[in-house]
Design a protein around this nucleic acid. Sequence first.
DNA 1: AACAAGTGCAACCGCCTTGGG
DNA 2: TCCCAAGGCGGTTGCACTTGT
Length: 266
Amino acid sequence: MVRAPFYDKNGLKKGAWSVEEDNKLRSYIQRFGHWNWQKLPKFAGLSRSGKSCRLRWLNYLQPDVKRGNYTEEEELMIIKLHEELGNKWSMIAASLPGRSDNDIKNHWHAHLKKRTKKNPTTSKITLSSEAYLNDADTARKTKTDSSVSCSPSYQVQESSQLPLETSSSEFSYLSFDNAPLSGINWTAKDSLATLETLEQSFSDFWTEPFILDNTYIQNNYPESLADGGFSASQSCYHEGVDSIYEAMQEIENYQKINKKDPSLVN
DNA sequence: AACAAGTGCAACCGCCTTGGG
DNA sequence: TCCCAAGGCGGTTGCACTTGT
């Protein structure tokens, strides 16, 4: 079904992803978010390009991603949106929670294109779904970063489909660029946070310690690193991505040491 | 049973956009 | 204003699987 794995001239792995690679990428993003796709593979211990990691995450590993089994309603929505927007798959995907643009694109070429040719009136059927967004711009904004799940629709999905292993962490699906908004309750009902809420959230972000879930420590990283590097280190967070990068390097160094001699760690 | 053609979909490629210096 | 890096998008490809002959 997929391309056989191979290494290109730069030593980057291409082709099908192994279960081990999936696990590495998933667990890394769930812990740290995707603060930089280019650097992420290195820190996650993957011999993949950043683009490849991003694609794999968005199309396959995201916790709320749905696969196959398109409902009639979904198909009608795709047809209708395609009629309006053309091949703007990302915009179409923004109106279909849990569906990736790639998946929709494939489904279109495999099934719906033929169907619309056979029955061009299909798309005239009125859609009952309230989820349908007329405003394409709004739809796009909704998906600004589908992996982050700040959009109301994604939030709803997650609440019912979160894997157990990840439910313990508020931080799990947040990338750093969205972390400041994590205090906002992005529900479908009140996606329009009030100014006060926003202000409060930003205020909290700058004043509250950066908290990671306990899986970090459980994985035998030294508490001192976990605490000093992230949990209790406001300064680290304040200094932005550079500090995060440095912290990541610290972790990486630690991982190397840990691999060589696990007994060094308590 | 064997082969060919068709299908589905994960993944890659290259271009475009955006933001920062 | 220009340049560059990174992210994002749409088109295309490769290949396992299914179906037809």
